[in-house]
């Protein structure tokens, strides 16, 4: 059974605070769980760090113009 997803709402924050919130939350992400991060923009600077830490990420634009990024262990 996969662990419950963790939700991070980083909308309304100035860079680099969204990245900090997401990376801090990832540190406590249980094995097999997914982190769902909501941001105002596509988190371009986050992707290389996620790859370096062994995570896979997928970003989708939402109807309200925000972005939802799903992050899990690669």
């Amino acid at each position: 059974m996969s662990a419950e997803p963790i939700e991070v709402d980083a909308r309304g924050l100035e860079p680099p605070q969204p990245m900090m919130r997401i990376l801090e939350a990832l540190a406590s992400l249980p094995a097999g769980a997914t982190l769902r991060a909501r941001t105002d923009r596509r988190p371009m600077h986050l992707f290389p760090i996620l790859t370096e830490r062994g995570y896979a990420a997928e970003t989708q634009e939402q109807t309200d113009g925000s972005f939802l990024t799903l992050i899990r262990r690669a």
Binding site: E4, P5, I6, E7, D9, R21, E24, A25, S28, R36
Partner: peptide, 12 residues
């Protein structure tokens, strides 16, 4: 040391 999760982070 880890304390309570920040307000904007929630488990669903």
């Amino acid at each position: 040391p880890p304390r309570a999760a920040p307000a904007s982070v929630s488990r669903t």
